[in-house]
Write a protein that binds this DNA or RNA. Structure first.
Length: 594
RNA sequence: GGGGGUGUAGCUCAGUUGGUUAGAGCGAUCGCCUGUCACGCGAUAGGUCGAGGGUUCGAGUCCCUUCACUCCCGCCA
C-alpha cells in the first residue's frame, strides 16, 4: 500500500466494514453539526462520506478546513444505519470514521464553487479550468472523450489500419483556411505552417505503400469560432485507404460510427445504414448540405404555380418573371395554431434579415380555399396544384418565400429548423446520420464569377475519365462525400485524384497553370507521378462526435483546455507578447495595425 | 468586419415609472447545533452597479462612446 491511499473514494462497500483504510481526495462538501462533522471526500472515482466528532483530537482543525483542500484520511470503515444510507452514491452504505488526517494540498478561497451543478460564465470557467474540470458533468465528458478515442483506436487497429504521426511543422497551403504560421530561425524570413489537416501527408502515406492509415490528428485553422467549432485547433480521425472505391470507405466508416454511437449512447439510431443524399437533392429538399434528418419538414419548389393566370400574388409573380423561384415548407395539421404562431415565424424571418415568410392555411368549406394574409391571391385550382406538388392536405399550412436560388436555400433551411423547433417536431433522443454524396467538382465564385474548386481540389471526378466534358466544368461531379448527423457536419472525404495529368487539367479549369501547380503542390504532384495507387479516405471530427455522444451543444464542453471565442487561452494567457530577443533571433519585427 | 444577447458582492441572480443608506441565496469569517448528505439556526465582513462621457435637482435604471464574454452572419476547400 502506498502512503496516500489503500482505496479510492469509490471502492469501499459493506464488505469492507471494520477495516482500517487510508483514502485521499478533495473535500467536496462539509456538513458541520457542531459536535459532529460530515466530510464528503471526492476523487476521480467517486465520493466517500467521512465522519468525525468532537471526541477526536483532530475535530477542531478539520472543522475549519476549506472546501477543495486535498487531504489524506486514515480511519475505519463503518456501517451506516438503515435510515442514513445514501442511495445517490455508490459508497452510500458505509462511511469512514476518521481517526487521523493530513493536509496534502491547501486551498485558497475558491473563485467558483466546485460541488454544484450551477452554470457559470465561461470566462471564469476557462480561467480556472482545473477547478471547472473537477465538476461532475464536464469531468465525465472528458473521460467519455478519452474512452471514445481509445475505442476508435482499437477498432481501427482491429481492421488493419496503421497509426502514423505526420508533421506539425509543415508548409503553408494556398487553398482553404488561414494558416497558423511559425517563423523559422534557421531559415530567416521563411515560415512553417501548422497543418489544417494532414491531407497531403496521408496521400503520401498511400503512395508510400502503407495501404491503410489512420491518426487522431490535430488540425489547425486560423478561422473564427462557433459553438461547434473551436478556434485554432481541433481533432480529426484522419484515415486513408489504398485501392478503394467510395463504397469501401463508406463501409469502414459507417461500421465504425455505428459501433461507436451504439457503445457510448443510449439514443436510438434512426437508420443503421446511412441514407445517401446527393448534394443537389439535399440543397433542394433541405436547403443545406448538412440537413438534420430528424426534422420531417421538406422544402418544395412551387415556382410554376406563380405562372398561372388565376394566381394574383403580384409581388411573387413579378419576381418569378425576372428569374426568382418560390419554395415552400408545409406544416401538417396546423390550421388551429394561433395567429401568433405564424406571425412569430414571419417576424423571425425578418429579424434574420430576410423579407419575411408568407403563409396560408388550406381549408375546405364548400370548396378549397386558403386562409391567411396572402390566401386571397390563390384560386381553388392553383391550391390544388400546390397540394399535388407538395403533398399538402386540408388543414396544413404553407410557408413560402420567393428569391434567387441561393437566398432561398438560405432562408428555407433556417426556416425548416425554426418551424420544426416551434412545433417540437425534432426527436432529441435519436441520431440521424446520412451521407451527402455527388458534390460538384467546381462552382462559380459569386464575387469574381470565376470557376473554382467547390471542395477538395484533390478529389477524383466521377464517370468515365475518357469521357468527361471539361467544357462544362460545373456539371462535373466528384467522388466527394460528407457525413452529417443531426444537422452537424461530422466529416468530409473523397476518393482522391491520383492521376497527375488529370490533376493538371482540373487545376487549369480553376485557373492554375502547370507551373503553379508544380510550385504549390510540389510534394504531392511529384509523388503521384512515381506510381500512385488509387486511394481515398475521410476525416470524421472527433470533437463533434464526442459532443453528440455527450449531448452537448458546445464543443468547449468536450474539450479539456479550450480557447475562448477570441482564440485566447485565459488560463495560460496565450497568445502573449514575446521579448525583443526572441523576435530578433527570428528576424521579425512588429508593425501593428492601429 | 457586421448583427443580437449578457455584464450589479468571490459565485448565481433580483433591483418597479429615474427617487432615502443597492438586496437575496451560496461562498467567506465568527458563534450555536451529534446523523447530515443542497444539514439547520444566528451574526459579521464583502459593491468603481464592466469602463468613460452626457442628460437630470437626482442615474444601477435614460442617451452616447467603449471594453469583455457569448450566440449568429461573413469565414471555415
Amino acid at each position: 500500500m502506498n502512503k496516500y491511499r489503500s482505496h479510492t473514494c469509490n471502492e469501499l462497500r459493506k464488505n469492507n466494514v471494520g477495516k482500517s483504510i487510508v483514502i485521499s481526495g478533495w473535500i467536496n462538501k462539509k456538513r458541520d453539526h457542531g459536535n459532529l462533522l460530515f466530510i464528503d471526500l471526492r476523487d476521480n472515482y467517486g465520493i466517500t462520506q467521512c465522519i468525525i466528532d468532537q471526541e477526536n483530537k483532530n475535530f477542531k482543525e478539520l472543522e475549519k478546513i476549506q472546501l477543495e483542500t486535498v487531504i489524506k484520511v486514515e480511519g475505519r470503515v463503518v456501517n451506516r444505519s438503515k435510515e442514513t444510507i445514501n442511495k445517490d452514491i455508490e459508497t452510500g452504505e458505509i462511511e469512514i470514521s476518521i481517526e487521523n488526517f493530513t493536509v496534502l494540498g491547501t486551498c485558497k478561497e475558491l473563485p467558483m464553487p466546485v460541488f454544484t451543478d450551477q452554470e457559470y460564465a465561461e470566462e471564469i470557467r476557462l480561467k480556472y479550468r482545473y477547478l471547472d474540470l473537477r465538476r461532475k458533468k464536464i469531468h465525465e465528458n472528458i473521460i467519455l472523450r478519452s474512452k471514445v478515442i481509445s475505442f476508435i483506436r482499437s477498432e481501427m487497429n482491429a481492421i488493419g489500419f496503421l497509426e502514423f504521426q505526420t508533421p506539425i511543422l509543415t508548409s503553408s497551403s494556398p487553398e482553404g483556411a488561414r494558416d497558423f504560421l511559425v517563423p523559422s530561425r534557421l531559415n530567416p524570413g521563411k515560415f512553417y505552417a501548422l497543418p489544417q489537416a494532414p491531407q497531403q501527408f496521408k496521400q503520401l502515406i498511400m503512395v508510400s505503400g502503407f495501404d491503410k492509415y489512420f491518426q487522431i490528428a490535430p488540425c489547425f485553422r486560423d478561422e473564427d469560432a462557433r459553438a461547434d467549432r473551436s478556434p485554432g485547433e481541433f481533432y480529426q480521425l484522419d484515415l486513408e485507404m489504398s485501392f478503394v472505391e467510395q463504397e469501401d470507405v463508406f463501409k469502414v466508416v459507417e461500421e465504425l460510427l455505428i459501433n461507436t454511437f451504439k457503445k457510448f449512447s443510449n439514443k436510438k439510431l434512426i437508420s443503421e445504414k446511412f441514407p445517401r443524399i446527393s448534394y443537389a437533392d439535399a440543397m433542394a429538399k433541405y436547403g443545406s448540405d448538412k440537413p438534420d434528418l430528424r426534422n420531417p419538414l421538406i422544402i418544395n419548389d412551387i415556382t410554376e404555380v406563380f405562372l398561372r393566370d388565376d394566381v394574383s400574388f403580384e409581388i411573387f409573380k413579378k419576381l418569378v418573371k425576372s428569374g426568382s423561384q418560390v419554395r415552400c415548407i408545409v406544416t401538417k395539421k396546423t390550421k388551429d395554431k394561433p395567429r401568433s404562431f405564424f406571425d412569430n415565424i414571419d417576424k423571425w424571418a425578418k429579424a434574420e434579415g430576410f423579407s419575411g415568410l408568407a403563409y396560408f392555411t388550406l381549408e375546405k368549406n364548400n370548396e378549397i380555399s386558403a386562409k391567411g394574409p396572402v390566401g386571397k391571391f390563390f384560386s381553388k385550382e392553383s391550391l390544388e396544384e400546390i397540394m399535388q406538388k407538395t403533398g399538402a392536405k386540408i388543414g396544413d399550412s404553407i410557408f413560402l418565400a420567393c428569391n434567387n436560388q441561393k437566398e432561398l436555400e438560405n432562408i428555407t433551411s433556417l426556416a425548416r429548423e425554426k418551424i420544426a423547433n416551434d412545433l417540437d417536431l425534432i426527436d432529441n433522443d435519436s441520431f440521424a446520420f446520412c451521407w451527402i454524396v455527388d458534390y460538384p467538382m467546381f462552382e462559380r465564385d459569386e464575387q469574381t464569377n470565376k470557376i473554382k474548386f467547390s471542395h477538395n481540389p484533390f478529389s477524383m471526378p466521377q464517370g468515365d475519365l475518357d469521357k468527361i466534358n471539361f467544357e462544362k466544368p460545373l456539371d462535373i461531379l466528384a467522388y466527394q462525400y460528407d457525413i452529417v448527423c443531426n444537422g452537424i457536419e461530422l466529416s468530409s472525404g473523397a476518393i482522391r485524384n491520383h492521376i497527375p495529368d488529370l490533376m493538371y487539367k482540373l487545376f487549369s479549369i480553376a485557373g492554375y497553370d502547370k507551373k503553379q501547380v508544380n510550385e504549390k503542390f510540389s510534394g504531392m504532384i511529384n509523388a503521384l507521378s512515381y506510381g500512385a495507387p488509387p486511394h481515398g479516405g475521410i476525416a470524421p471530427g472527433i470533437d463533434r462526435i464526442v459532443m453528440l455522444l455527450a449531448n452537448e451543444k458546445n464543443i468547449r464542453e468536450v474539450t479539456m483546455f479550450p480557447m475562448n471565442q477570441n482564440a485566447q487561452d485565459l488560463m495560460m494567457s496565450a497568445p502573449s507578447n514575446v521579448n525583443e530577443n526572441q523576435l530578433k533571433e527570428l528576424n521579425l519585427s512588429l508593425k501593428l495595425k492601429k
